[in-house]
């Protein structure tokens, strides 16, 4: 912090800075509270999505295990030859409380039965179910990846805001208050000295008169 001269103009400047710092602290504190509330509401949602992802992963693994076990690995691999489109994953951005967060969207994940590429009469429903389970798993993965990226961004911002709030609360504002106090005291001291000096001048003037 720079050196302050004990002048009235400096006192006014310090008071102005202190008011700005207090105002900023209040705003940042409110932002921090808002971000924390958003974080916790998203945390619950992300936890649910993660649980859903785990459930879907288990289902997908079981579905493919059943398809391979009943239909045989050759039949399942043969059906996999028909896969012809990879899902197109796109990442864009949106703003949550001024923070830029990613939005992950994907196309061609869930396929209709007529889009899978294999015949419906001869291909077992178990293979169709395994394909469906993996499509649903992929959707869940994309949803969770977006939510976790948002959560991480929120956490980074909360941390940054917390550091700024603490800096204001425990460093800048106390320092400014201390400077304000010392300038005020110095100014008062100077005021008293001035009065004393004036009185002395007055007494000297009366004595010589």
């Amino acid at each position: 912090m720079r050196e302050y001269k004990p002048t009235r103009s400096e006192l006014l400047l310090v008071r102005k800075n202190l008011a700005i710092a207090k105002n900023g602290h209040q705003l940042l504190k409110r932002r921090q509270d808002g971000l924390i509330a958003k974080f916790f509401s998203m945390l619950d949602e992300t936890r649910e999505s993660r649980d859903e992802l785990r459930k879907r992963l288990k289902l997908a693994e079981e579905s493919i295990a059943i398809a391979v076990a009943i239909e045989g690995i050759f039949t399942v691999r043969s059906a996999a030859f028909t896969r012809h489109e990879s899902p197109a994953v796109e990442v864009s951005e949106k703003s949550i409380m001024g923070i830029t967060v990613p939005v992950v969207s994907a196309e061609n994940i869930r396929k209709r039965i007529d889009q899978r590429g294999f015949g419906i009469i001869g291909t077992s429903h178990r293979i169709g179910e395994a394909a469906k389970a993996y499509e649903e798993l992929m959707e869940a993965v994309i949803k969770v990846s977006e939510m976790e990226a948002v959560i991480k961004k929120l956490l980074d911002d909360i941390e940054g805001t917390r550091r700024r709030v603490n800096a204001l609360e425990f460093n800048i504002i106390p320092q400014l208050e201390s400077v304000e106090r010392s300038i005020t005291m110095r100014l008062e001291e100077m005021e008293r000295e001035n009065i004393f000096r004036l009185k002395r001048f007055k007494n000297l003037a009366e004595a010589t008169a």
Partner: peptide
């Protein structure tokens, strides 16, 4: 095949019996 592949893929004996 179900028994062999089911075991390879980690299906439980109960699940295999069910299938």
């Amino acid at each position: 095949r179900l028994i062999a592949r089911g075991k390879e893929r980690g299906l439980s004996p109960d699940k295999i019996r069910e299938l």
